[in-house]
Measured scan of single mutants.
Amino acid sequence: MFYPNSPQTSPQLTQIPYGQQYAMMQRQIQQPYHPFATTEPQARLYPYHYQGPIQQEQGGFITQQSTAASPQYVQMRVTPVDQSIMSGYPNQTANGSSSSSFNYNIHPQQQQQQQQQQQQLRHHAMPVGSVPLQDDRYRKQLIVNYLAPDVTSTDLHELFSRFGELDGARIIYDKQTNMSKGYGFVYFCHAEDAKEAVERMSGYEFHGKWLKVGYSTNPLNIVPSNSSPYVHAGSRGAAG
């Protein structure tokens, strides 16, 4: 039997160049792979992502010199942007860049009308829970959420009447099932009393439920100042 490094198959040491006398086997001759043993700084910083320098080929596509990437890492192929796409944008300079302001050559009167329309939209648009300043009635009506099913309009009136005089209180019921929808409205005579009720009743436990109280901004629920107070009856038909 002959071994790869046996004296019968191995040459004389004098015939082997210096430095390879003890590297006779194939696994010894093959050098191990060192990912950080390279002179390129990109490979030292990113050993798993770097795959060699990027070269520009004919046709405008950018390719990489090395083989496919590892399945664990996804390499994105980048193509140059066609400058003709950006030619339609206004205020574009000769080098292809555009300024931040756009001039669509709008007539001054049209621009003024658009600004007025935007101001009107901001004036009428009102986020949930906010209180408008032009109508004091919005500051007097509250919406009470997360009410228990057994709470009546009379219970709601008695709960909030300790903060001040009320114009009314009612629970909203479903017309088909005649069941409470879980929320109601309270109408105060003074805005200061309503503000105190919002601050003190939010998070209050009532009939096993934690109440959420806020201003009601729905104009359909506003009680006119010259109208008669609501009837605080315990029956659902009268309260709904």
Rank of each mutant, 00 (worst) to 15 (best):
F2R: 05
F2G: 14
F2P: 04
F2K: 01
F2N: 14
Y3P: 03
Y3C: 04
Y3D: 14
N5D: 11
S6A: 07
S6N: 12
S6Q: 03
S6I: 13
S6H: 04
P7R: 05
P7S: 12
P7A: 11
Q8N: 07
Q8R: 12
T9H: 03
T9D: 12
S10C: 13
S10V: 11
P11I: 01
L13A: 03
T14G: 11
T14I: 15
T14E: 11
Q15D: 15
Q15Y: 04
I16W: 15
I16P: 01
P17E: 01
P17W: 15
P17L: 14
P17K: 03
Y18L: 07
G19A: 06
M24K: 00
M25V: 11
Q26S: 05
Q26V: 14
Q26A: 00
Q26L: 11
R27C: 15
R27Y: 11
Q28C: 03
Q28V: 15
Q28L: 07
I29A: 00
Q30F: 00
Q30I: 14
Q31W: 15
Q31N: 14
P32E: 12
Y33I: 11
Y33H: 14
P35Y: 15
F36A: 09
A37R: 06
T38S: 13
T38H: 05
T39Y: 13
T39K: 05
Q42G: 11
L45N: 10
L45I: 09
Y46K: 15
Y46I: 15
Y46M: 15
P47Y: 15
P47D: 06
P47E: 09
Y48T: 07
H49Y: 11
H49D: 12
H49E: 05
H49Q: 13
G52M: 00
G52H: 00
P53R: 05
I54N: 10
Q55G: 06
Q56C: 00
E57W: 06
Q58C: 02
G59I: 11
G60E: 04
G60L: 06
Q65H: 09
S66A: 08
T67H: 04
T67E: 12
T67M: 04
A68L: 11
A69E: 12
A69T: 09
A69R: 04
A69S: 08
S70V: 01
P71G: 05
P71E: 14
Q72E: 15
Q72D: 04
Y73Q: 12
V74P: 14
V74Y: 00
V74G: 08
Q75A: 03
M76W: 06
V78H: 07
T79Q: 12
T79R: 06
T79S: 05
P80E: 11
V81R: 08
V81N: 13
Q83C: 13
Q83V: 07
Q83L: 14
S84V: 05
S84H: 13
S84F: 15
I85S: 04
I85N: 04
G88C: 11
G88M: 14
P90D: 01
P90F: 05
N91L: 07
N91Y: 08
Q92W: 09
Q92R: 11
T93F: 14
T93C: 05
A94G: 08
A94C: 01
N95W: 04
N95Y: 13
N95G: 01
G96R: 05
G96M: 15
G96T: 03
G96E: 12
S97T: 09
S98Q: 15
S98M: 00
S98C: 15
S99E: 10
S99V: 04
S100K: 11
S101R: 02
Y104Q: 00
Y104H: 01
Y104A: 04
N105D: 06
N105F: 13
I106R: 04
H107L: 07
P108R: 08
P108Y: 10
Q109C: 13
Q110I: 00
Q110H: 01
Q111A: 12
Q111Y: 15
Q111K: 06
Q112M: 02
Q113D: 02
Q113R: 08
Q113A: 13
Q114F: 15
Q115W: 08
Q115M: 10
Q116A: 14
Q116K: 14
Q117V: 12
Q119V: 12
Q119K: 01
Q120C: 01
Q120L: 08
L121Y: 15
R122W: 00
R122A: 03
H124E: 01
A125G: 03
A125K: 02
A125D: 11
V131G: 04
V131W: 01
P132M: 13
P132K: 07
P132L: 05
P132Q: 15
L133P: 11
L133W: 03
D135T: 05
D136K: 02
D136N: 09
R137Q: 07
R137N: 06
R137K: 12
R139F: 08
R139Y: 05
R139H: 01
K140A: 10
Q141F: 02
L142C: 15
I143R: 03
N145V: 01
N145M: 07
N145C: 11
Y146K: 12
A148G: 09
V151P: 11
V151A: 06
T152I: 07
S153E: 08
T154I: 08
D155W: 00
D155E: 01
D155Y: 06
L156W: 09
H157P: 08
L159F: 00
F160M: 11
F160P: 11
S161M: 14
R162T: 12
F163H: 14
F163L: 03
G164T: 07
E165W: 09
L166C: 01
L166P: 08
L166K: 05
L166G: 08
D167T: 09
G168S: 07
G168T: 01
A169V: 04
R170H: 05
R170N: 01
R170E: 03
I171L: 06
I171K: 02
I171N: 03
Y173V: 04
D174M: 01
D174G: 04
K175N: 12
K175D: 14
K175A: 07
Q176W: 15
T177E: 06
S180G: 03
S180H: 11
K181M: 11
K181P: 15
G182N: 15
F185G: 01
F185Y: 03
V186W: 10
Y187R: 00
C189H: 02
C189V: 13
C189Q: 06
H190T: 01
H190V: 08
A191K: 10
D193Q: 10
A194Y: 13
A194G: 06
K195G: 08
K195E: 01
A197S: 07
A197C: 07
V198P: 09
E199T: 08
E199W: 12
M201N: 04
M201Y: 01
M201A: 06
S202L: 04
S202E: 11
S202M: 15
G203A: 06
G203F: 01
G203Y: 02
G203D: 05
E205K: 12
E205M: 13
F206W: 01
F206M: 15
H207I: 08
H207D: 00
G208T: 05
K209F: 01
W210V: 10
W210E: 01
W210T: 08
L211G: 05
L211C: 07
K212S: 05
K212A: 07
K212F: 11
K212N: 02
G214C: 09
G214E: 14
G214Q: 00
S216I: 09
T217C: 07
T217K: 04
T217R: 06
N218P: 03
N218Q: 06
P219H: 00
L220S: 05
N221L: 07
I222C: 06
V223H: 11
V223K: 00
P224N: 11
S225R: 10
S225K: 11
N226T: 12
P229Q: 05
Y230L: 09
V231H: 07
H232T: 04
A233T: 06
G234H: 10
G234A: 08
S235N: 07
S235I: 03
R236P: 05
G237M: 00
G237S: 08
G237D: 10
G237N: 13
A238N: 01
A238C: 15
A238M: 13
A239P: 10
A239Y: 07
A239K: 12
A239T: 08
G240T: 08
G240I: 13
